[in-house]
């Protein structure tokens, strides 16, 4: 006679019945429904539009600028470049800021609301919760970068001409290839944000005050970029988080220059492994007292 028969409560033995993605979908929805996150997403998507309008206003007054950074000079010739410009301009600060907020909030937000204890009683499982939170951060990053590129390309095409793109190496590629390159750039940017997200989730396990976690994480890319400017620290530069954050131009060569990009993917995978391990160690050993 089973235990449940003995006491008369028909509690079925736990079996794995839910689809593996159910929890992740639910967490991602939670991130995307949050008004604060939607606001940040809206601002990021609006940024290329604002840049496009500003360029349009200045180019119609005849002040083209050939030395402009981040392909801005190319945008007047081919509006699709605005998608690339958007990523490059937002990558140093605003995209990581958004990721700092989402990843810093991931565990600390649940702890401060007290919902962490209820998730663990469900039981969500500490490792599984961490993996799900991290995955939802990474997906949020991917959605953001794809939307930024899309917004830039659509705005650029609407305000300027759109056509075949002449790459930095001189080769010309068609629309399909341009879209593919844009997607690769968005994906690469998402990987960069994924490296930061791992740090963010770790910091988030350290505190019950989400704002403290967010601020700490937001400071990390800034600090890293400052260190990257100090020549005396050149030995450190290849290991800095932000060392490969500005190599988007390499996607616009034929063939794609993979050296820096590959190094970027590797270092960020390294950051992810290290900080997720720390986060796992911290979360699985911690007493949940909130």
């Amino acid at each position: 006679m089973s235990t449940s028969e003995l006491i008369g409560a028909p509690a079925p033995a736990p079996t794995r019945t839910a689809l593996p993605g159910t929890f992740l979908a639910s967490e991602l929805k939670l991130v995307l429904r949050r008004r604060r996150n939607l606001g940040m997403l809206g601002v990021l998507v609006a940024a290329p539009i604002v840049i496009g309008l500003a360029l349009r206003a200045s180019s119609s007054s005849g002040e083209g600028d050939g030395d402009a950074p981040a392909f801005l000079g190319e945008v007047a010739g081919n509006g699709l470049f605005l998608g690339f410009s958007g990523l490059l301009l937002l990558m140093p600060f605003f995209l990581p800021l958004a990721m700092s907020v989402v990843s810093g909030d991931s565990i600390a937000g649940e702890a401060s609301a007290g919902t962490l204890r209820y998730l663990l009683i469900v039981p969500a499982g500490r490792g599984r919760l961490l993996a799900t939170k991290y995955a939802s951060c990474v997906l949020f990053g991917l959605i953001t970068t794809v939307l930024v590129v899309t917004s830039g390309m659509v705005t650029g095409a609407a305000l300027f001409s759109a056509g075949d793109v002449t790459l930095l190496s001189g080769t010309t590629i068609g629309f399909g290839e341009t879209l593919w390159r844009a997607l690769l750039m968005a994906g690469y940017a998402a990987v960069l944000l994924g490296g930061l997200a791992a740090i963010g989730v770790f910091v988030s396990t350290l505190t019950e005050v989400p704002v403290a976690a967010m601020a700490t994480v937001a400071a990390i890319p800034v600090l890293s970029q400052i260190l990257g400017l100090i020549p005396q620290l050149s030995w450190l530069h290849p290991w800095l988080l932000t060392d490969t954050w500005s190599v988007f131009g390499d996607f616009l060569r034929e063939p794609i220059m993979t050296e820096a990009i590959g190094r970027g993917l590797l270092t960020h995978a390294g950051y992810a492994v290290i900080f997720l391990s720390f986060a796992w160690a911290r979360l699985t050993m911690r007493d949940i007292t909130s």
Binding site: A18, P20, A25, S26, L119, V122, P123, G125, L129
Partner: peptide
């Protein structure tokens, strides 16, 4: 409640 139930991998959706 939907969210809590989604976190339970042994619950039937």
């Amino acid at each position: 409640l939907v969210r809590l139930d989604a976190a339970d991998r042994t619950a039937t959706p």
